[in-house]
Design a protein around this nucleic acid. Sequence first.
DNA 1: TTGTATGCGTTATCAG
DNA 2: CTGATAACGCATACAA
Lengths: 351, 351
Amino acid sequence: MASKKNLQVGMKSSNVSSHTAVTLEMVAQRAGVSPSTVSRILNGTAVVSALKKQAVDEAIATLGYVPNPVARGLAGGRTFSIGVITQAIDSPFYGASLRGIEDELDPAGYSPLFVSAHWNADMEVRHIDMLRSRRVDGIIVLTGRLDDQALKTYAKSLPFVVTGRALKGPGLFALNFDNFKGGLLATRHLIELGHQHIAFIAGDPEHPDAMERLQGYQAALKEAGLVFDPALVIPGQYHEESGLLAIEALLATGKRFTAIFAANDQMAVGAALGLHRHGLRVPQDVSLIGFDDLPASLYSVPPLSSIHHPAYEIGRQAASAMLQLVSGKKPNLVVSEPVLVARESSRRLPA
Amino acid sequence: MASKKNLQVGMKSSNVSSHTAVTLEMVAQRAGVSPSTVSRILNGTAVVSALKKQAVDEAIATLGYVPNPVARGLAGGRTFSIGVITQAIDSPFYGASLRGIEDELDPAGYSPLFVSAHWNADMEVRHIDMLRSRRVDGIIVLTGRLDDQALKTYAKSLPFVVTGRALKGPGLFALNFDNFKGGLLATRHLIELGHQHIAFIAGDPEHPDAMERLQGYQAALKEAGLVFDPALVIPGQYHEESGLLAIEALLATGKRFTAIFAANDQMAVGAALGLHRHGLRVPQDVSLIGFDDLPASLYSVPPLSSIHHPAYEIGRQAASAMLQLVSGKKPNLVVSEPVLVARESSRRLPA
DNA sequence: TTGTATGCGTTATCAG
DNA sequence: CTGATAACGCATACAA
């Protein structure tokens, strides 16, 4: 009993708990049962008499016992830790997902182990091996670069949850977001505002989602009967610098454009600065819309119109799916749809 | 032996490594030595004959042996994992520090265990307990809320590295940043530009660093012979919303001001939007400077002047210090000084 | 239902 | 210098 101990030792009351060296064995002794019984109760492995369960629960409470995840891991049991492979630990977009994962895992007693792969498939493999050597109970991969087949193979021996792709397989769950539709919505928005010359700042062609957004853009153009001009599509790399550079490239073409759709908010922000540098005002001279709806986009000048991409929710869902996977259930989740968030960076084209 | 098994099963070769079940014992057998010897070589615990070392190294290489951190942890050895307590896993500022920590720890074979305490001392305590139960080799606390005494007590049983405070103690290393000087530099910059009515958007009074920045602001005013007007100091919470609200509050006072120093970039960005909403241009009508120099500040419209706060470096240094601490050395690092980064949001006051 | 014995992969403590 | 042997804390076949 913590209070009793404090009394005995006469130690100065403090919120610093001395490291709990309370073992399962001690609990067993206190409760007058065998260690296995305690283990059974802890894991629900088998049915035990209500009486003993009582005693054990009490012992656990008074002793303040907390299982040692390390020992559990070694014994072949679970480590209660989930590996999470993100691309950059400081990404403004994935950051929200990480928070979602953390929020979902924590109450369940699981700890996330975050690692960054920097868009590098080899590093992803290295990290997966590392995570397995640490005996994580499962791995969540946020938009990885690993090919689907490799992922499927991995999933045979360890639960996997992946975002950003459509996949199915045993021990594998995928959460895909409709990037095509997002691209469609963004472009439609601009078109409905009267714009007919819409430039597109593309994401890295290596990213499937970037390509899907481009296709959405093209589809919207087509359904509106507008011509698709490849010269108005500027390549980018999903970061601010790309947006800035894209404006230069765009202006250099001499083509007319009254609106820009950037494949993500970071590039949109860069584009806004590029426009500003050339004395072009947003939205008076050029309408601008991004994609992802980063928290910061609400505070850009002017606030950026965007396509909401529920990163936090996706994180929670991925973690939730993982929790179900590790407990043998089959995840059953629907990912939310992209939705347009019209703010001040886009406006109707003056007649 | 993995290769033999593969042969038997005739399994398709793939780049997905089947989980390395290569144990230290197998290495020992292959090398014709005892497990203890292998362990010694691995940890440099004792001197072994060059000959045996050769054999063991070879066995390790050919077998592709990789130590099991979990077993190491249980055996009382190190887990090669470092707990990192940040305040929000998706903070734009701390994100850079996390990356620094990751970059420094990874090559050393250590893994960070990131957890968020959300500026809550109780949660910090909970996380520390959790991390200890996971047998981390040390804990890095990024600007925690825990009181110094508690931290010192914890550090007696486990290496701690803390940022954002000045502390000393056994097994404890603190990396403090000179926020006062930063505040001084920012304000001086504005004064040198001819501004005499400088508002200050303060950070949360609960944060010591926020108070230090305020003091720097006051000191700069004083050394320039300018009067300190408390009405020009608006409270804030370090987030964008605060900046936005601060502008309203500032304007409501009716006081004159030609420049604003926000205690961090996030509030500066919010302030920029607030100014924009009132038709006030930055920097033509109001000069603005932030603090922290977030990566995104380079791309705000206009690019934000700020005080560079080397978050990434601090992360690396914290991790480096931890690495030294766990290996019994005494860290010897100097934290870099704040430096002014003048961009386009601040300009000379027209005569 | 419950207890006993064994093993998980390493490190650490002993003897030699 | 090196090799047995005992923990580390828990889960789990195997017995009872």
